[in-house]
Simulated assay, not measured.
Amino acid sequence: MTRVWILPVLLLLTGVLAAAGRAADGARGGAALLLLLFAALAAATSPLVFPRSIGAAEARRRSAADGRPVVYWRPGCAYCLRLRARLGVRGRRAHWVDIWRDPEGAAAVREATGGDETVPTVVVAGRAYVNPAPGWVRERL
């Protein structure tokens, strides 16, 4: 659980330290800009930008019922963040499974990718697609 917050917290602490150094040199505007930049990076890499994750079994059940894709992801993954950002509001329609929180989801990704935990892995109608184009996923939503 705490592993997902390591990168965002490190980014925020780095920003605070860098901003403090700039502020000590008298560059308050630069310090504020650095702090905002690192805070934005911390927010973007946190699990907060993704819809609430559900378990893999529940995601498969829901997908079978409504036909929506299941997206396996993990915090800190730049490709997952790119997919989430490009899907926009529509992204909430997919069923999101955090593979760091759900061992069954991680196992499903390893099975689909030949042993790797490559994410995002999107499952549509029982077929897995590794790192698909965001436009393609948007069409399936």
Rank of each mutant, 00 (worst) to 15 (best):
R3H: 10
W5K: 05
L7D: 03
P8N: 10
V9K: 04
L13C: 13
L13A: 15
G15H: 10
A19V: 08
A20F: 15
A20G: 09
G21I: 07
G21V: 07
G21N: 05
A23D: 10
D25F: 06
G26L: 10
R28W: 15
R28H: 13
A32K: 09
L37C: 04
F38E: 02
A39H: 06
A42Y: 11
A42L: 09
P47N: 05
L48A: 14
P51C: 10
P51D: 11
R52A: 13
I54L: 15
G55N: 05
A57M: 08
A57Y: 05
A59S: 14
R61V: 03
R62K: 13
S63G: 12
A65L: 14
A65G: 09
D66P: 03
P69G: 09
V70H: 01
V71L: 03
Y72I: 00
Y72A: 00
W73A: 10
R74Y: 08
P75K: 04
P75F: 06
G76L: 01
Y79N: 08
Y79G: 03
Y79F: 14
C80E: 04
R86C: 11
L87C: 12
R90N: 08
R92D: 14
R93P: 02
A94F: 10
H95F: 00
W96C: 02
D98S: 09
W100H: 09
R101P: 05
R101G: 15
R101V: 01
A108L: 00
V109T: 10
R110G: 04
E111M: 11
A112F: 06
G114T: 01
T118P: 01
V119T: 04
V123A: 04
G126C: 01
G126L: 00
V130H: 08
P132Q: 02
P132E: 09
A133K: 13
P134V: 06
G135Y: 04
W136G: 01
V137A: 03
R138Q: 08
E139A: 15
R140H: 04
